[in-house]
Design a protein around this nucleic acid. Structure first.
Lengths: 213, 213
DNA sequence: AAACAGTCGATTGTCGACAATTAAACTTAA
DNA sequence: TTAAGTTTAATTGTCGACAATCGACTGTTT
């Protein structure tokens, strides 16, 4: 059997490095990124760096101003609202499309994620909790069956991840967050489109409301 | 006053050239694109070509297989369905968001597009008709106010344009198409979310149905 | 003949160098 | 002093060359 491993490109690796740097706050919002510096830092050619920056541009993490320079996105409240709205649009759609594919095996998978969340109940577990939350949502989107929407969601996830990172200062109750998730699960179990749509709507707006009022 | 013209990159120009080549059927679906050949043909470096190909990859017009090669997307019926679904998702959402911004000036703009469509009633005017249709939809999406969704729609438009191009063999009644559009306009004029949502749904599915059953 | 390994040409990936552009520092003139 | 023009340094855009990889072809072994 021929192996079908797609070695990811160097650019993609660097892009992931940069993403992590932003998430670790080693790189700040609005900061300018100099191709030469990154080239030296990661010991790859500027070409590779430029590839990486274009990848980041695609998922909205940086803004490239031709002939001027590249800057880490400086998200405004308006940006966050746009992102959350985009998420809401995609998830509402994807969840409804996923409903017919939700059977026992899928529910078991979802429940296992939910179970893990239950014990991440201290503030230190915050990020773990979010990662599990994203995994939960991501899994359902993947069941929607539309590869383009799944791909779009990957890009949204990067931005949501960034949003949550900066949200964590404002957020204090993992318990409440878990209960929210549990309610979403209950809604899914009914397999009633109307119920699911309403729940996903309030679920996402709930997080938005915490930060953006 | 400092002029703020953003000269578009060479890569973007080449990408547009390639798009047109595909639309003019000079390049076929599934065809392999050799960087060196394109580099020679357009008299730019391979670097620029690679930029262009990445742009096309982003809006789904080509598939880049790392270390293997780049191929023009070979859309299957399943792909077309995905694209139409994606369009439906975005337009449904964007139209509802646009409703509050639809006032007299906007309706006048829309009506003027509609008027132009009315006289494109022969089969030869087919492509003009589609372009006007896209302009109509695009204008409403732009009123949604979400810059990310507007950008996403730009990419969907490229694919829709490709779809319609290959649909035109199957389509024979500009008249019916215009009447469809007129109904959508009527729905918008009510400014009733439910009515608009239903109409946009049937409107898009109508086109899909013509081709994909 | 089928399965495998080795070779070779074509193609993509990566690099360093140079050109074009920008923004800042510096002059000069009113 | 300010405003406009000019030089300069830093940075991005483009290029051609070389390295790595892939797939087809060839020959060898069983």
């Amino acid at each position: 059997m021929k192996s079908n491993i797609i070695k990811e490109s160097l650019g993609e690796i660097i892009a992931e490095e940069l993403r992590r740097s932003i998430w670790k706050r080693e790189i700040g919002f609005g900061e300018r990124l100099i191709e030469n510096e990154l080239s030296a830092k990661y010991d790859v050619s500027r070409n590779v760096i430029r590839d990486a920056l274009k990848i980041l541009e695609n998922d909205g993490m940086v803004v490239i101003e031709p002939r001027k320079g590249t800057y880490v996105s400086d998200f405004s409240d308006e940006d966050w609202k746009e992102i959350i709205d985009l998420r809401l649009m995609v998830e509402s759609y994807a969840f409804l499309k996923a409903l017919p594919h939700l059977e026992n095996p899928e529910f078991i998978e979802l429940q296992s994620i939910l179970d893990k969340m239950k014990y991440k109940d201290s503030v230190e577990d915050w990020m773990d909790l979010f990662d599990l939350d994203m995994k939960f949502h991501s899994y359902i989107v993947s069941l929607s069956g539309n590869s383009r929407i799944i791909k779009l969601y990957e890009s949204i996830k990067v931005q949501i991840r960034t949003f949550l990172l900066y949200l964590d200062e404002y957020y204090t109750s993992p318990k409440a967050f878990y209960e929210e998730q549990e309610e979403l699960m209950k809604a899914l179990l009914t397999k009633e489109p109307k119920i699911v749509e309403n729940k996903i709507h309030t679920h996402i707006k709930y997080v938005e409301g915490k930060f953006l009022g």
